[in-house]
Simulated assay, not measured.
Amino acid sequence: MGLGASMKETTLHHYRDPFVALLAEDQEIDLRGVIIMGSANDTPSKMLASTRTAQLIRSLAIDGAILSCNGFGNNHIDYTHLINQVGSAGIPFVAMSVCEAADFVVQNSYLSEVLPFYKSSNAKETGILGQNTVNNLDARKAIARLRMKMRQS
């Protein structure tokens, strides 16, 4: 399933990513890096990519992670697998998605940690370029939630 125009993260969004900007300034959280993972077409490749990404996250010996997905449908197959792998490893995390976890095509026990970031009241795309991407308020909520989870673990 393709991404609509309002969910596309433009180059400008990448250069001004709210997570990177906020975490770079944060005195309590040490930003280790950003991992960008694409979504393959076939399920075995999806599972491999998400398993390897989770292995990379574990190898970094981090205290917490923010996971984000800006797609629908088949993109949630590997994203849900990644969430499961990170959660099973006991790494505190917050997951971001353009929709509620109940709308994912697959489910697991770690999806209660998903925060949706759509901007319309009916949980649909607004059709306005760049509007349905993570903004500063979304990032602040996710970082605050991650900070709480890291303190609890």
Rank of each mutant, 00 (worst) to 15 (best):
M1F: 11
M1A: 14
G2F: 13
G2H: 12
S6P: 11
M7R: 15
K8P: 01
E9K: 00
E9F: 02
T10M: 12
H13Y: 14
Y15L: 12
P18D: 05
F19H: 09
V20L: 14
A21S: 14
A21V: 14
L22I: 09
L22S: 14
L22C: 07
E25F: 07
Q27C: 07
D30Y: 09
D30T: 04
L31F: 15
R32L: 14
G33Q: 07
I35K: 03
I36V: 14
G38D: 11
S39H: 07
S39A: 13
S39Y: 01
A40T: 04
A40Q: 12
A40I: 02
A40K: 12
A40N: 08
D42A: 04
T43H: 02
T43E: 08
T43Y: 01
P44A: 00
S45M: 01
M47W: 00
L48S: 06
T51K: 03
R52D: 06
Q55I: 00
I57R: 05
R58I: 02
R58K: 13
S59G: 08
S59P: 03
I62L: 14
I62C: 15
I62K: 00
I62V: 15
D63F: 03
D63A: 08
D63W: 02
G64A: 11
A65L: 03
I66P: 08
L67Y: 06
G71S: 12
F72A: 08
F72I: 14
G73M: 13
N74M: 09
N75P: 06
N75Q: 13
H76L: 12
D78E: 15
H81V: 05
I83L: 11
N84D: 10
Q85E: 14
V86H: 04
V86Q: 05
A89F: 04
F93C: 09
A95P: 00
S97Y: 06
V98F: 01
V98H: 05
D103T: 09
D103H: 09
F104K: 03
V106I: 10
Q107T: 06
Q107H: 13
L111R: 02
L111G: 03
S112Y: 01
S112F: 04
V114D: 01
L115C: 01
L115E: 08
P116R: 02
F117I: 06
F117S: 05
K119R: 11
K119V: 10
K119Y: 04
S121C: 06
N122H: 08
A123I: 01
K124T: 12
K124W: 00
T126C: 08
T126S: 13
L129S: 10
Q131E: 14
N136V: 11
N136F: 06
N136D: 15
L137C: 07
L137T: 13
D138R: 04
K141F: 05
K141M: 11
A144L: 09
R145S: 13
L146G: 00
L146D: 08
K149L: 13
R151G: 12
